[in-house]
Amino acid sequence: MEKVISMLCRYLLTLCTVAYAQVTPPQVVTCYGTLQGVNESGINVFEGVPFAVRPVGANRWRAPQLLQVWCRVCYSRFRIASRRQKNR
């Protein structure tokens, strides 16, 4: 009887571990802060990761500016639409 209970406990612990692993999104720590992505079919995906300050306003025609360190988690799970130019 003790053997059956032990096996059942191990099985339940394995199920809980697998369920937690599937719910927890992947995170990566960079020199700028923590990025959080998504797991798609067993592959960790990080899309829309910022690599420079956005080129708006005074930065419009300047060289790319380095990012500042961020304190919160940066969510990189949103797909960015590609900006394709039309052939003329």
Rank of each mutant, 00 (worst) to 15 (best):
Arg77Val: 04
Leu8Ser: 14
Arg83Cys: 15
Leu67Pro: 09
Gly42Met: 08
Asn44Gly: 02
Arg10Ala: 11
Asn39Glu: 01
Thr34Ala: 04
Gly33Tyr: 01
Ala21Gly: 04
Leu67Asp: 10
Leu66Asn: 12
Val23Ala: 07
Leu15His: 01
Lys86Gly: 13
Pro26Asn: 02
Gln85Asn: 15
Gly37Tyr: 00
Phe51Thr: 00
Thr34Glu: 02
Val56Leu: 12
Ser76Ala: 15
Val18Glu: 03
Phe78Tyr: 08
Met1Leu: 01
Ala21Asn: 02
Ser41Ile: 00
Gly48Thr: 01
Arg79Trp: 07
Glu2Gln: 12
Leu66His: 12
Gln85Asp: 15
Ala58Asp: 08
Leu13Ser: 14
Val69Ile: 14
Val4Pro: 04
Val53Ala: 10
Ala19Phe: 05
Asn59Glu: 09
Arg60Met: 11
Tyr20Cys: 09
Tyr32Met: 00
Val73Ser: 13
Arg77Gln: 13
Val73Tyr: 09
Gly57Leu: 10
Phe46Glu: 00
Ile43Arg: 13
Leu8Phe: 14
Cys16Glu: 05
Val45Ser: 03
Val4His: 10
Asn59Lys: 12
Arg72Pro: 03
Cys74Ile: 07
Arg77Tyr: 11
Arg77Cys: 13
Arg10Pro: 00
Ala19Glu: 06
Glu2Asp: 13
Thr17Tyr: 14
Gln22Arg: 03
Gly33Phe: 01
Val38Leu: 08
Ala81Ile: 12
Trp70Asn: 06
Pro25Gln: 00
Met7Pro: 02
Gln36Tyr: 04
Gly57Cys: 11
Leu67Ile: 01
Ala19His: 03
Val18Cys: 04
Gly48Ala: 05
Val45His: 06
Arg84Ser: 14
Thr14Arg: 08
Thr17Asp: 05
Leu67Trp: 06
Gly57Asn: 09
Cys71Arg: 07
Ala63Trp: 08
Ile5Pro: 03
Cys71Ser: 13
Asn44Lys: 06
Tyr75Val: 14
Val45Pro: 03
Ile43Asn: 02
Val49Gly: 10
Val4Gly: 01
Val53His: 04
Thr24Tyr: 02
Ala58Pro: 07
Gln65Ser: 10
Ser82Ala: 14
Val29Thr: 08
Ala21Met: 06
Thr24Lys: 04
Glu47Pro: 01
Val56Lys: 11
Leu67Gln: 09
Gln65Ile: 13
Val38Ser: 07
Arg62Glu: 12
Gln85Val: 11
Tyr20Gly: 05
Trp61Glu: 08
Arg79Glu: 06
Gly57Met: 09
Phe46Thr: 06
Val29Trp: 02
Tyr32Leu: 03
Val73Ile: 15
Pro25Cys: 02
Thr30Glu: 00
Leu67Gly: 09
Asn39Val: 03
Arg62Ala: 14
Ile80Trp: 12
Phe46Val: 06
Arg83Phe: 09
Thr17Arg: 11
Thr14Lys: 09
Thr30Val: 05
Arg88Ala: 15
Leu35Thr: 00
Phe78Ala: 06
Arg88Asp: 15
Pro26Arg: 01
Pro64Trp: 10
Leu8Arg: 02
Cys71Lys: 10
Cys71Thr: 14
Val29Ile: 00
Val49Ile: 13
Arg77Met: 05
Val38Arg: 03
Glu47Arg: 13
Asn87Ala: 11
Gln22Glu: 03
Cys74Gly: 05
Val29Met: 06
Arg10Met: 12
Leu35Cys: 12
Gly48Ile: 10
Pro50Ala: 09
Val45Arg: 04
Pro55Ser: 11
Met1Ile: 04
Ile80Met: 15
Ile80Ala: 13
Arg84His: 03
Gly48Gln: 07
